[in-house]
Structures are given as C-alpha cells and as structure tokens.
C-alpha cells in the first residue's frame, strides 16, 4: 500500500466513524454560542463596547470551545486499541496521526470558525471586518489543532484531563492571539495588516509542520 493510499484510508475511516456519531460535533458549537452569550450579559448590552471587543471575544470563544473538543482527539482510538494497531501495522504512524488531525480540524475547528459569523448580528461587527477575523480564526484553528494534538496525545494516559490541557495549550497560543487581534485591529483602523497576517500564517505553518512529529512521538510514549 502506498503512503498516499494509507493516508486516504485513515482519513476515510475517521470520517466514516464520525458519521456514525453526529451528535458529538454539536457540543463545542453550542459551547461557542454560550461563551458569546455570556459576554453581553456580563459587560452590558452597550453596542459600542461589544462592537469593539467582538474580535477578541471571537478568539476567546474559539480557544475555549477547542479546549472542550481537544481531549477527544485520540481518546477513543486509544481506548479501543486502534492506536496500537496503527503502531504495529508497519506503516508510518505519522500518516494516521496527520489524517486524524485533519479530520479533527474538519469536524470541530472548521464549524467553529464558520460559526463566528454569529458575531456579525450579535455584536454588530461589520461583515468585512468579520472576513478578516475569520481568516485569522482559520489560521489560528490550524495552530490550535496542531498544538492540541500534542497535548491531547500527552494527556492520554493521565488522570486529569481538561484543566491540564488548558495549562499546556493556552501559553503556547499567545503569539497567535496577539498577531490575530492586531491584524483585525489594523483593518478596523484602516491600516495594512499584511505583517501580522504573515506572522500568523508563519506560526501556523511551522506548527503544522512540527506538531505531527511531536504527536507521533507522544503517542508512541503512551503506547509503550
């Protein structure tokens, strides 16, 4: 079997499995909306303020909802022994890891990024600003998936899940958050935002390149 075939098969398996448990994927979305709902209730319904903090809230809601979803990335495959099979199959495990990351991104991250359109009516964010925000969220979601895959692999054998997950992922996300919000702010102030956008893209590409290696290594450690 060629590497490409193996990769495609792994991806297909992940997607087919996901199709059998559709209800799973709604929960992070609901969580996203709940976080967005909390904001006007806590800072007050004044629209100018909400409008100003809308991009930041989109990012915070994305990070929190991803943190809810991340522990599930490898948990089931670990429990039912599939991961062990991946590692003794003789095929490079990194391909299966990559397939899992891509399927996770498609199933959890992409819907969250798209659902940030809710900020347009809720916080009266202008549509063209939302477009920029969505671009940053898109690149950020790659980064969160990549870093999260390492963290969720590392936490497979551990007892406490989500609190440690936040501690592992959030500090490493801060650069992306900084560049993303400054990119959106630049557009809102009518300035060019190429710089932060390129930095954000660079961080994402770097993490997508390196994370599968670290994830594979962590999974191997948990298998042994």
């Amino acid at each position: 079997m060629s590497y490409l075939d193996y990769f495609c098969l792994s991806l297909k398996r992940d997607m087919q499995l996901a199709a059998t448990q559709k209800h799973e994927f709604g929960l992070p979305l609901v969580f996203f909306v709940l976080v967005v709902l909390l904001v006007p209730l806590s800072v007050g319904p004044e629209i100018n303020l909400l409008n100003r903090i809308a991009p930041a809230m989109g990012w915070i809601a994305l990070i929190l909802s991803m943190l809810i979803a991340l522990p599930r990335m490898f948990a089931e495959d670990y429990d039912n022994g599939w991961l062990e099979l991946v590692f003794i199959s003789g095929q490079p495990p990194i391909l299966a890891v990559l397939a899992r990351m891509i399927s996770f991104w498609l199933l959890y991250a992409l819907p969250l990024v798209l659902s940030s359109i809710l900020l347009v009516p809720f916080f009266q964010l202008a549509f063209e600003y939302w477009l920029v925000l969505a671009q940053t969220l898109l690149m950020g979601s790659f980064l969160i998936t990549a870093l999260g895959s390492i963290a969720s692999a590392l936490l497979l054998g551990s007892r406490k899940g989500s609190a440690v997950m936040a501690l592992l992922v959030i500090p490493l996300l801060i650069p992306a958050l900084i560049f993303a919000t400054s990119a959106v702010d630049a557009v809102i102030q009518g300035l060019p935002n190429t710089g932060p956008m390129l930095m954000l893209a660079g961080i994402s590409v770097l993490s997508i390149t390196l994370a599968p290696i670290a994830t594979e290594h962590s999974l191997k450690l948990m298998m042994s």
Binding site: I150, L154, L155, G157, S158, R159, K160, V164, L167, L168, A214, H217, S218, L221, M222
Partner: peptide, 19 residues
C-alpha cells in the same frame, strides 16, 4: 502539572520532556 498527572512516573517524565 503534566509530570504529576501520571501515575507512572516514567511516562510522566518523558511527557514532561516532550512538553
């Protein structure tokens, strides 16, 4: 925290190294 979230200290140590 990662080190202490494992019962098996050997695995915890390696995980901490990766992090």
């Amino acid at each position: 925290a990662l080190y202490f979230s494992f019962d098996d200290k050997r695995t915890g140590g390696k995980a901490a190294c990766i992090l």
